[in-house]
Design a binder for these strands. Structure first.
Lengths: 334, 334
DNA sequence: CTGAAAGCGCTTACAG
DNA sequence: CTGAAAGCGCTTACAG
């Protein structure tokens, strides 16, 4: 890793040592502009010998770039695998293209933290995780003309967005239950302010339409966020004859499972339960819960590639389309 | 947030507009050096009117600083609340002192990603989450003389480290079970390469010593990472007469609970189960699991403050000592 | 193919 | 209290 204790060389040092100009060294380093093969080789060799790495900050100042990308997490984002996987994918790709990732978490509603990042010239672009309806963040970034991509669906055509196939996957998961003969499916989800809630709901409805069954709209519950609400919703659904529960994510599913257990309802004997997002908790539950598994890390990678392309990097996206798996487990056994 | 569409002003623009020198503007901005109150006021007012923010990158170049801190996550770090909470705490504090956080995740063993961050002059210091015994990362950072703080215990006196009170808390949790009359406590933990494993084990032993009971060393299991190993360990412990299970973290606890359920063991009737780290999973389990709740976010804040102090910032730590709670739940009911 | 020079936006001795 | 100048480490027209 490090050769010697290591003086930190600058481009000026190299130029001096090699008896050429800084310009030449710079060109040899960047590979831009014509340069003698011998000169290039001498520079290359020096770099290698002394383990030289350019000062990216200085480079950035000269080029008006930072080689940093910001990732913004939503206000009060929950501790779910989604964000970590996303972040891992983004970092992986950024790293590969020599960019670094700066995180910014909202502490309160508003854009102050993002604002600072932008105003301070700390990033070249931003990746916004989890789209929110009517987002202040998006509005701010547009105003400031900061390039950005959004993870999540978007109805704004000016915005570059990318998402897991929540709707299609939701449709397939719902279809599965319908094909098992269930007819009173309850759907439990979180905030209507999140686009993802809408996508999942659409998937649920699509499946019903497809099979010519009318979805019971009274069995669709959103804005469910805590134990109390879950409990109420589960009770309501049950007394309205629900024979299956489709939970929009693993957190809600856990809550629902807790309620069902307390009420002495057996799964899958009495009702089936599925989650629209997989996790270890779903996998190791008793019974293990049938869930949708997305390639969220791949999603992060794709979002990052898109961002890099917007910044003029030659970042080809050679990966396959984002897909998902429907993981069948005991919670839907018949 | 943004006044007008907004030309981006530089210190030179301001100097020109105000008919003073860049030097003066710079001084007014930083508050260093004597300056006329009237001049200072004019600058202040301009800044406010035009929503000027200095280019931190340029500032950094001139001062040989970046106002970025790196946070390093361990190789293949698991998706547990600990890291998110830590990160949130760090970000919160960094933000407050006008620093930003760059993340770096190991993709493979080795230091390549961290190396790049350091060599590229992208950060002023690093916060290493979760100390590992004989860490390459620590060795590299020391060699490079990059300031850093480690989250986790450390036996290296040259290293600044800070940690949750895992040992004391572990002792208290173990004592609780001993006082309930349990005498065959099994301890299940992860990798011995993590310092935290050692701390927790020590706490377990401390409690036994304190009460004059000998801990059954054959009931101490580490290196437990997957379902299979957990299953084997749980069976062994049970046949060795274990009457309580102390799991070092929530992931292991979940695994253990799964095994116990499958084997038809009732909790808390047959055996008690506790976790040395709390989480929603522990809280919403059936039964809910008695756990230790740490202020990991506070830990992140403290680590960040320490880092800032090392960098010469006036970052006073006014927070209370890191503490923890022992949350009693049904899994230990008698 | 190569270099001298200006510039990126700031800071900081040094000299009034 | 204020300014001219040099400098942080790089890039990039422009001119050989």
């Amino acid at each position: 890793m490090s050769e010697k204790e290591g003086k930190i060389y600058t481009i000026t040092d190299i130029a001096k040592e090699l008896g050429v100009s800084k310009t030449t060294v710079s060109r040899a380093l960047s590979g831009k502009g014509r340069i003698g093969t011998e000169t290039a080789e001498r520079v290359r060799s020096f770099v290698e010998r002394h383990n030289y790495t350019p000062n990216v900050v200085a480079k950035g100042l000269a080029q008006n770039k930072t080689y940093n990308l910001g990732i913004v997490f939503p206000f009060d984002y929950p501790d779910i695998p989604f964000f970590k996987e996303c972040m891992d994918g983004i970092c992986e790709t950024a790293y590969h293209y020599n960019y670094d990732i700066i995180i910014s978490v909202h502490w309160k509603e508003g854009v102050s933290q993002i604002q600072r990042l932008v105003m301070n010239h700390k990033v070249d672009g931003m990746i916004v995780t989890r789209a929110v309806i009517n987002s202040q963040v998006v509005r701010f970034l547009k105003e400031r003309r900061m390039p950005f991509v959004v993870i999540g669906p978007s109805d704004d055509l000016e915005v570059s967005s990318i998402d897991n196939p929540n709707r299609e996957a939701g449709r397939e998961l719902t279809s599965l239950l319908l094909m098992k003969g269930l007819r009173r499916l309850a759907l439990i989800g979180g905030s209507d302010m999140h686009y993802v809630t809408e996508s999942r709901k659409q998937g649920f409805i699509d499946a019903h339409l497809e099979q010519g069954i009318t979805a019971a709209s009274e069995l669709i519950y959103t804005e469910v966020s805590d134990y109390r609400k879950t409990r109420r919703v589960v009770e309501q659904a049950l007394s309205a004859g629900a024979d299956g529960f489709i939970c929009m994510d693993e957190t809600i599913c856990n809550l629902a499972l807790g309620c069902l257990r307390e009420m002495g309802i057996r799964i899958p004997a009495d009702v089936k339960v599925v989650s629209m997002y997989d996790s270890h908790q779903m996998e190791f539950n008793l019974p293990p819960v049938t869930s949708l598994r997305f390639d969220t890390r791949g999603l992060g990678r794709k979002a990052c590639l898109e961002m890099l392309r917007m910044l003029g990097e030659n970042a080809e996206d050679e990966e396959a389309e984002l897909s998902y798996e429907l993981v069948l487990r005991d919670s839907t056994k018949t």
